[in-house]
Design a protein around this nucleic acid. Sequence first.
DNA 1: CTGAAAGCGCTTACAG
DNA 2: CTGAAAGCGCTTACAG
Lengths: 342, 342
Amino acid sequence: MSRSGTGRGRGTGRATLGEVAQAAGVSTMTASRTLSQPELVTEATRARVEQAVQALGYVPNRAARALASNRSRVIVALVPSLSNAVFTAVLDGIQDAVDASQYQLLIGITHYSDAEEEKLLRTYLQSDPDGILLPGLSHSAGVRSMLETLSVPVVAMMDLAASPDTLSVGFSQSEAGMALTRHLLAKGYRRIAFVGAQLDERTLRRADGWRQAMQEAGLFDARLEIMTPEPSTVALGAALMQRVLAGLPDCDAVFFCNDDLAHGAIFHCQRAGIPVPGRIAVAGFNDLPASSLMVPSLTTVDTPRYQVGYQAASLLLDTIAGKLPKARRIDLGFTLREREST
Amino acid sequence: MSRSGTGRGRGTGRATLGEVAQAAGVSTMTASRTLSQPELVTEATRARVEQAVQALGYVPNRAARALASNRSRVIVALVPSLSNAVFTAVLDGIQDAVDASQYQLLIGITHYSDAEEEKLLRTYLQSDPDGILLPGLSHSAGVRSMLETLSVPVVAMMDLAASPDTLSVGFSQSEAGMALTRHLLAKGYRRIAFVGAQLDERTLRRADGWRQAMQEAGLFDARLEIMTPEPSTVALGAALMQRVLAGLPDCDAVFFCNDDLAHGAIFHCQRAGIPVPGRIAVAGFNDLPASSLMVPSLTTVDTPRYQVGYQAASLLLDTIAGKLPKARRIDLGFTLREREST
DNA sequence: CTGAAAGCGCTTACAG
DNA sequence: CTGAAAGCGCTTACAG
């Protein structure tokens, strides 16, 4: 015997579309159509169905819809970290774009690990996503082959693809690195160090930009490049600044790959009584909220991360909908913020 | 005619469990069992099925599984904001707990709005969640009635429920507010202002704690309470500090409801040449990463937000699994960090 | 504009 | 330890 007198068998106990249809005196498929394509139905029918929906508190079952329609209406977004304010802004942009659609967003945190990225993607394939948002351009062979097999649209975020085969929304990390370095050169700094942490793809591209600008100026010196795989934090920035001051006494400016490192560096100098930029200039990247307010205010590069998320998600949704995008590679640019610290 | 020669009809084009079963020479249900309860199957069968899974690159279809089993294996987590580092840490904890399970996490951002919270919940009901994580204890009537109708477990995060009917994981916001205020009183400050922004539930509870401590000390003065619904940011902290200095000249200490406000306040004082704590003491809440490193370092309350997320998700998953929790109300406490700014 | 029927890809009592 | 069959709640060509 069924567990209740409603005849719902092993169901959820919630109203089904069939029950809505019955209450409205129409067939299930007419009820279905009323919800998905109301313009194909008489006004009278629509009213009766909508009333039944209200009366029964009907909530459509996504799993059934996905299974029957063979469209999951799911998109997956992978980001490296939530601790990095850059990616929370990207996610905010994605959310806002997706919220306006019928799509459901599945968020995965890769912790900057290729292996985790691959594992997450594999798990999320169970939800049969209609599209995917990924950070950056470089992925493991496993991820690349999964994406090929899948044949759903993929949009790369935060950098620009070289090939037009890849949909991408972002800005040139290397040009931004170059622009900031050139600013420092123009200010007269000569021994400009680059300090990179985490060593994700974007940091490496910024380092490329720094290297190129230094080479162009005839001032490149490999000893000025300080790289560590440790996660980028304020505390690490303080420690690395100490290391620069001790190990590179003639260094007159430091380009930190992220603002949080630069904040730590400035705090360290402040505590040690080292004038910034008098003794040494400090620049960061991303223009985090504190950067314009701290003392000295921080020279940095403002990046359009919310827009990256918003536009990447919009591009993905448009592509899923079969619209031909105006551009397959959307360059949102960046803005140099010259402040007191340089 | 079907759109391909594979006989897969309007399907996804991916291997199904039936195809795996066929390749392994067993029935579909034996294949199903091999994946879900391998201990109920001979080793030989298991090997053949697993080989077929590998060969066909089989990925289970979540929608079909959810529909057939009437268990979505979905849990929903709502948080107010991603800009607030507190909630990204909560989410990290939730993710880590959920990743170890077979559950899929759906994340929603309420932007501190009851209306958005209700809308998100309504949307996520389409996924028929097996459990829900919500920030705080107070929700709109609409949300409360949805939760009652749903009858799935709900865990409140970041504060402690008064009633044992509610599962909750967090700490007492009001006691934390009291503890910090008492620290300031013990240090000899008398005209201690409370500055609250956003005015979410947690900020209001911290204000309650401040008020109670001030009343106990016979020092309460309503003019010392400065509340604004604006979002909490570093820039707002600088502006509010300016307002305190101008409007409350005898104020000797300020308790900001969040560290980012306190950071802005310290930056403002630094820029204006106002000694902290010499002229005025500054305290925050949450112990954000920069707080221990800035100059002066910030007195604040360290909150176990990652653990809140992790334990809340664990409690939810245990409850879904039918395990009786040891406690329905998990108090993770807080830690006062006495530093230079007071 | 509306409907009967098949089917999406799984799982689940129930037998054997 | 393994299987036949029904069913989860929808959508979709195809008719009329």
